[in-house]
């Protein structure tokens, strides 16, 4: 299912990725699932609360996820997925990403190096968890 995300929201993800470099940034992607497309209405930054190695790891606290769920529902939207950055690594999911991934959610990954964003791609876990399918990003 393609992910439609406006230029302003993409730019917000890129800015977050540059701000937290060399650590990973993370946040939520909220909007509407029309059945044939996920339409992003907003992106909400989260704090990366992973205890250590934040240059290669991220964690969003469950209470924060709960709040995102409630805030999205309060605006008649759904939590469509999450974004995070890969500092100095490609915008592709790692094995560690796969082990922690959930079905359905879009996982938008931005590759960043210093002030420069290299690439942004979106991925969805396969139903059998064996890997990912890349999702088309429409702007």
């Amino acid at each position: 299912m393609p992910l439609k995300i406006g230029r302003g929201d993409i730019e917000n993800i890129h800015r977050h990725a540059r701000e937290t470099y060399p650590e990973e940034c993370a946040g939520a992607i909220v909007g509407l699932d029309t059945g044939g497309m996920k339409v992003v209405v907003d992106v909400w930054p989260a704090e990366n609360t992973h205890e250590d190695e934040r240059s290669r790891r991220f964690l969003i606290e469950p209470l924060q996820i709960k709040k995102f769920e409630e805030d999205a529902a309060g605006r008649d939207m759904d939590l469509l997925g999450f974004y995070h950055s890969h500092p100095d690594h490609p915008a592709e999911p790692s094995e560690y990403d796969r082990e922690h991934a959930w079905p359905y959610y879009s996982y938008v990954i931005t590759s960043v190096s210093g002030d420069s964003v290299r690439d942004t791609r979106s991925w969805v876990l396969k139903d059998d968890r064996s890997g990912y399918d890349e999702e088309e990003i429409l702007s």
Partner: peptide, 15 residues
């Protein structure tokens, strides 16, 4: 009761 996913990941294997 709320069922809440843990959301985590990262770019590469841990050292």
């Amino acid at each position: 009761l709320s069922i809440i996913p843990s959301i985590a990941g990262g770019s590469a294997e841990a050292r």
